[in-house]
Simulated scan of single mutants.
Amino acid sequence: MNRLNDTAFTDAEKRFVPYMMSSDPTPDLSVEIALMLQDAGVEAIEWGVPYSDPLADGPVIQQAGQRALKNGGSLTVSLQKMKEARAKGLTVPSVLFTYVNPVLSYGFTKLIEELKDYGFDGLLIPDLPYEESHEYRALCREKGISLIPLIAPSSKSRVEKITKEADGFVYYVTSLGVTGTRESFSETLKEEINTVKSFSKVPVLAGFGISTPEHVQYFQEHADGAIVGSALVRKIASLEDSLKNPEEKDAALNEIKAFVQNLISY
């Protein structure tokens, strides 16, 4: 079963989806953070794979990837740790967020064939152009995996073409450039999101730069949900030492949980 197609996700009134870097601060702690995010009330999780050249990521997530790589993180470890999280009780949908080069090194067909067994429902590859994704999209559908498209401001015809093929959800990029927190967004976003929603049969979630409860509320009103990455990754980084200290770990996890619940307290 693809959890992104389950009514718990498709029929949710509002959706909050956090991005986290697997293996940051350690592989085992990332499993505990994922379970904590579920307890905090998120609707799904984007599970980032550490990579040395993450073109779509801003400095906060780049640094998290470097920490994760130093701690033994990799695509293989990311897969294994999601399987471990499922065994420990993770039930919300999960999307593997990675880049083309690690996937090619692992084997594109091999990865898609194995994702379900590791507990994933979706795959998101920001540097895979839509025009080169058709073969992989077909294989994902065959294997019950949603290949999530990213849509940035573009021509209406291209937006329509990409959106109508979307599965799982559409990731609407709220601003051009890399990920990272922002103070404000374009005044045209509401109209642009409405255009994407008019073509889409799946939820449209907005991401890139969303970092405050007000941002989350705005995009849950105009889109079908909000994705938060850099703000959460920064919070986890600020608590790295406490998370690694057995005597302080629970308090640190609870602090991250409270941070997330504050974001979604609409």
Rank of each mutant, 00 (worst) to 15 (best):
A56R: 01
K116T: 05
I151G: 02
I45G: 01
E114Y: 13
V216H: 04
F199P: 14
Q220T: 03
L253A: 01
G168A: 06
F199S: 11
A40S: 15
G229D: 01
M21E: 08
T10R: 14
Y136V: 11
G119R: 02
I227F: 09
V228L: 12
P27W: 03
R137I: 03
W47R: 00
T26I: 02
S186I: 01
A166I: 04
V17H: 00
P27Y: 08
K164V: 13
P246F: 01
A85L: 04
A138S: 11
L205R: 00
E135W: 10
G65I: 00
S200E: 11
A8K: 14
L79H: 06
K190G: 08
P153I: 00
K143P: 14
I193K: 10
G209N: 06
L111A: 03
S242T: 00
M82W: 03
I61P: 09
E191C: 08
S30N: 06
V42S: 02
S238Y: 05
T188G: 05
Y51E: 06
A85Y: 04
P129W: 07
A44Q: 07
E248Q: 15
A56V: 07
R137F: 09
D224H: 13
I33Y: 09
G168H: 08
T7V: 07
P27N: 09
E46A: 06
T174M: 10
I193N: 15
F259K: 00
E142Q: 11
F108K: 14
K14V: 11
S211T: 01
G209D: 06
Q217G: 10
N2K: 08
S211V: 00
L69K: 06
K164M: 14
I145H: 01
I162E: 01
L75V: 01
V77M: 14
V17F: 07
F259M: 00
F97M: 15
D53C: 07
E191H: 12
Y99K: 10
D121V: 02
D224S: 05
T179G: 09
L115N: 05
G119N: 03
V216G: 04
I193G: 14
V103E: 03
T109G: 09
Y266S: 14
L35S: 01
V42P: 02
K190D: 14
M21T: 04
L147C: 11
S175E: 10
P27E: 04
D39P: 07
P129A: 05
A251C: 04
